[in-house]
Design a protein around this nucleic acid. Structure first.
Ligand code: SF4
Ligand code: SF4
Lengths: 159, 159
DNA sequence: ATATTTTAAGACAAAAGAGTCTCAATAACC
DNA sequence: GGTTATTGAGACTCTTTTGTCTTAAAATAT
């Protein structure tokens, strides 16, 4: 797999948060419910992201998590680096240690090119970009739920 | 990681075999020694590849493994598909099931493009191509050994 | 035939990744 | 102050991947 499960969950939650443009904190429980991710697992992942300064947390009622963008847009790369580290972008396709152009493996040229494609994609795509697109076209963020599920808050209430 | 450890080992061994253009069988023990891979682990991996018809095996003295190329060149993709399956090329970047253009996730367009880059690389690169390049330039196939180590057979013998 | 060299098959163990649970800390509300 | 809603931290379990070991089967050579 390209990205670890943790990383994918981190990205999904980040996209959720990117739909809230104000400073509103979203409780992890709400995100885990909407995104169908284990609450405790998501908590650990978001703790990593707040530790990295990508998000901010606040305890107690009306608390939760929000993006800590200081006006700047967040590229997907930030999330990936925070959770999966830089392996994907630095490691050898053949698993050899201390990769580099000095002592390359036979795959190096081709792999370096492919890897740059991945890097560019992650660097040039931002959370808000995807979140806006997702809201406009009601794209999928879960097995069968589009972005709209992030907003209709009381679908489980009794009528 | 892009490719599993098994897959990477399979590729390394495949490159080894691609340096033997005749029908010579190479014992797994020799490959595992030269490539610094656990013998038993490599055995299991090569069993998968022979089961898929990518390689041929022969038991007993002078036995071993050889590529089963019927004149055709083997793209890296064949090895990857045999060991890791098609996940990498078919699965969603956001881990959503039943991916497709009908009900896409917000990353789809960008990811599909990146994924095509990976696919092309694996499809258009062949074992013999890499093996020839590796031999010409003595590129790295192990932590600190180039392709030359695949040929000097008696380096461990007493003098 | 017997011993040797090799792959085949599968049980087993160790390590890493994914997921669950419990308890503590902090903040708000009454 | 006490209760409730929330994150924080860490132990713990389950699953998958990775790696090891043992035994069997096939081919060869003597
Ligand atoms: S030369 Fe390139 S492909 Fe080879 S090990 Fe180094 S980084 Fe990887
Ligand atoms: S639409 Fe594309 S990126 Fe999204 S889940 Fe499907 S294949 Fe993956």
């Amino acid at each position: 797999m390209l990205l670890s499960k943790s990383c994918v969950y981190g990205l999904r939650a980040s996209l959720f948060l990117a739909t809230r443009d104000n400073g509103e904190y979203v409780p992890i429980r709400k995100m885990s419910d909407k995104l169908e991710i284990s609450f405790h697992f998501l908590t650990k992942i978001l703790q990593q992201l707040t530790a990295e300064g990508i998000m901010e947390s606040f305890k107690g009622p009306n608390g939760g998590i929000r993006l800590n963008r200081n006006g700047a847009e967040v590229p997907l790369m930030d999330i990936v680096l925070a959770i999966d580290g830089s392996q994907l972008l630095t490691e050898c396709a053949l698993g050899l240690p201390g990769c580099g152009t000095k002592n390359p493996c036979p795959l190096h040229d081709k792999w370096a090119e492919t890897r740059d494609g991945i890097r560019e994609m992650l660097e040039e795509t931002t959370l808000t970009e995807l979140a806006e697109k997702g809201m406009e076209e009601n794209l999928r963020l879960t097995t069968d739920g589009g972005f709209d599920i992030l907003f209709n808050d009381h679908e489980d209430e009794p009528k």
